[in-house]
């Protein structure tokens, strides 16, 4: 039953990847994945919060009284989210403008509170850190992938940070703009879930 630190890390990347396997934390998954850049930016911000709050919750797990643990977790998470918000405003302002309200909303992302409650409050610092990092990177990859798929189908190009837009589909392609609208997010997510379930799980 006891897993190693490495296993705690890798489970977040495939076996328990949050948006697809657990279908958790869908608000940012659906809302911000219009482009690859937005998806990855949001994912990295969430990863930072996840790792930070997991480490701190795990460090304080014997100090925090169980009756008020949720309140304590929220204080810790909200602190990290505000740190991210301020840092993004200071250093990546255009991305902050694009993600807008979804940065402060990381506070209520159930992956973050879920990992604090279900994992970090019961495990040691190293494992919690690995768990947060794995979950966060899995979340980032999912958002990036979903963003890339929607962007390529919806606009025909792929924008990479600091680079020009790369035309993937060629000039003759007529953008299927439905995919960058809100309903397209549901369709893209559903199709990707379906594809993931086609790959058989290891026993």
């Amino acid at each position: 039953m006891a897993k190693t630190v490495v296993q705690e890390f890798t489970k977040g990347l495939w076996a328990e990847v949050a948006p697809f396997r657990l279908v958790l934390g869908l608000c940012p998954v659906l809302a911000v994945t219009k482009t690859l850049e937005n998806g990855v930016g949001m994912g990295l911000a969430t990863t930072f919060v996840l790792v930070g709050s997991n480490i701190l919750v795990s460090m304080l797990r014997n100090v925090i009284p169980s009756k008020v643990r949720i309140a304590c977790f929220i204080v810790i998470i909200a602190t990290f989210v505000t740190v991210v918000e301020l840092l993004m405003q200071a250093f990546t302002y255009p991305l902050f403008l694009k993600l807008g309200i979804f940065i402060p909303l990381i506070v209520v992302n159930c992956i973050v509170l879920g990992r604090a409650e279900a994992f970090a409050s019961k495990n040691g610092v190293a494992k919690s850190c690995a768990d947060g990092l794995g979950m966060g990177l899995g979340f980032t990859l999912s958002l990036g992938l979903l963003g890339a798929v929607r962007e390529i189908i919806g606009t025909g190009t792929l924008s990479l940070p600091f680079l020009y837009n790369i035309p993937i589909m060629g000039d003759g392609y007529r953008p299927f703009t439905f995919m960058v609208e809100a309903p397209g997010a549901f369709v893209a997510l559903g199709l990707m879930l379906c594809l993931m379930n086609l790959i058989p799980k290891k026993a």
Partner: peptide, 27 residues
């Protein structure tokens, strides 16, 4: 516990806000 946690995070955020204020204004 809650009071210590809250005041610690409040202090941290106030400090960070002060140090990033100028940069944010410029951005």
């Amino acid at each position: 516990v809650i009071a210590v946690l809250a005041s610690f995070s409040g202090g941290l955020l106030a400090g960070l806000r002060n140090s990033t204020k100028e940069k944010i204004e410029y951005q």
